[in-house]
Structures are given as C-alpha cells and as structure tokens.
Design a binder for these strands. Sequence first.
DNA 1: TGTAAGGCTTCCCATCATGGGAAGGTCAAG
DNA 2: CTTGACCTTCCCATGATGGGAAGCCTTACA
Lengths: 132, 132
Amino acid sequence: MNIGEASGASGVSAKMIRYYEQIGLIAPKGRTESNYRVYGEEEVHVLRFIKRARSLGFSLDETETLLKLWQDKSRTSSAVKEIATTHINDLERRIAEMQGMVKTLKHLSHCCGGDHRPDCPILDDLAGESAA
Amino acid sequence: MNIGEASGASGVSAKMIRYYEQIGLIAPKGRTESNYRVYGEEEVHVLRFIKRARSLGFSLDETETLLKLWQDKSRTSSAVKEIATTHINDLERRIAEMQGMVKTLKHLSHCCGGDHRPDCPILDDLAGESAA
DNA sequence: TGTAAGGCTTCCCATCATGGGAAGGTCAAG
DNA sequence: CTTGACCTTCCCATGATGGGAAGCCTTACA
C-alpha cells in the first residue's frame, strides 16, 4: 500500500502520515526499491487509532502514550483511565474558560445598541471604562 | 516610561509589547537617545485594551480591528457588535465540540474498570473495536 | 515505445501567540 | 569604576497542520 492509499484508508493526510513518522509515532512497513513508503493493514489500523484519539482532543503526546499502552498487552486499564481523566479535566477547564468569555460577551452585546451610533459598551469594557 | 514599566503598568510582557509593535498593533511614543522605547499613559491604555480583548478570546487580528474601531470616533456600534457576535458563535461552536469529546470520554471512562487488568473500553474505542 | 499525468520523495516555509536565551549596549547605585 | 539590572536586536521553539517547489517514479494510453 502506498502512502496515498494508506491515507485514503485511514483518513489521515499523507502530509500528516509523514509527520507522524518523523516524530516517531508510526513507521511504514518498509520502502520499495524506488523509496516509496509501504503500509499494511496494521499500519492503517494504527493511523485510525491516532485519528480517533486526535478527534477526542488528545494531544499527539498523549496519543503516543495511549498507542504504547494499546500495544502493551500487560498494561493496566487504570493507566489508560488516568490519562483520559486528566484530559477530561483539561477539556472541562477550557470549556469553563470559554463559557466565561461567552457570558461576558453576551452581556456586553446585549447592552450594545448595534446601530449607526458610535456609543458601544463593548469597546467601553475593552477600554476599561465599563459602566459596570 | 521604559518598556519594563509599561509592561508592569499594563500586564503585558515586554516580549509581547515588542511583538505587537512589530505586527503594527502599537508603537512607542518615541525612543530615547540610547534607543530605549518610551511609552506614555495612552500607550499603556492601548496595551490594557489589547490585554482585555485577548482575555475575551479575540485573536490579534480581531483585536486590531476593535482597536481601530475604538480609535475611530465615527464608528457604528453595529460594526463592533458584529465582530463580537461572530466571536461568540465561534466560541460556542468550539465549546460544543469539546463538550462532545467530554461526553464520549466520560462514557468510555465510566465503562473502564480502571484496575490492574488490561481490558479497557477506552483503548477498544480508539482501536475501532468498541462494543457499541 | 514515447509521453503525459499523477503520485511519490525531500526540503523549506507559514500559521498563531508566546516564551527562552544569547550577545552586546546603557543606566543607576554603591 | 564596577556591578547588576535593565534595554536592544536576533534567532529558535512550541503544536499540528497545510502549501508548494524541484525532481524522481509509475501507470496508462496513443
């Protein structure tokens, strides 16, 4: 399987597959005489694993750890669960942060006429001149 | 005022102040004979504006636009409100995305024993072998 | 068999916002 | 006059991804 076919089969772009190889996440099964990367079903499986982990928001670092655990038959599920829990906490922290921004912005937007006049509570807030 | 003092007064690091200057967001009032940047209250005010905009999640591009609107006395509040609304929508989209991740991860975590055994629904999901 | 299209290779660059650090000039206090 | 704390510019790194160029390889078709 060429890199293009592996890309199609996994949903990971060829560009990214090469990058993952560069950072040591996954290696091709081998190379052809003309130096083309060759992949098999196993590699495609790994690429799908990576893609799924990324779609759940895991960093490539975390993904690498998960990948190693996946391939380590003597792993403990607690090790995996810990990574997931940490990640959930991180996501929830970031969600809360953004929700705070949204709350403030909605309040300011609500107070802003949104018309042809220049008066704007949003700018007043940014300028530290909020009436509140 | 030196860059260090301006940094202290605005809460923006000296590194960032120089960067904002480089990308055209803000210029010092002038330079001393020995080439030190000189800032006044007005510049500090602008730096605080930038900092507040950043803390509400606006990109530097959006911040630049807001800054220009702030300084444009003939602006319309609708122009500002539109930027804010777009940003709110963007934040909400990202929040929803992360909430989806959290939901999935919590489900998987809940199903994972988190013990000394290797069986792990989280890894099974990543590997595309989820029982679901 | 020749050629054209499209896929592969490596290498460099850009993003976005921020920080780290080196090398060298300047200033103020002791 | 020295020392330490500042300032200057310049280069590099982050994380994950995409863009694109230059050059080689393969496949399909005339």
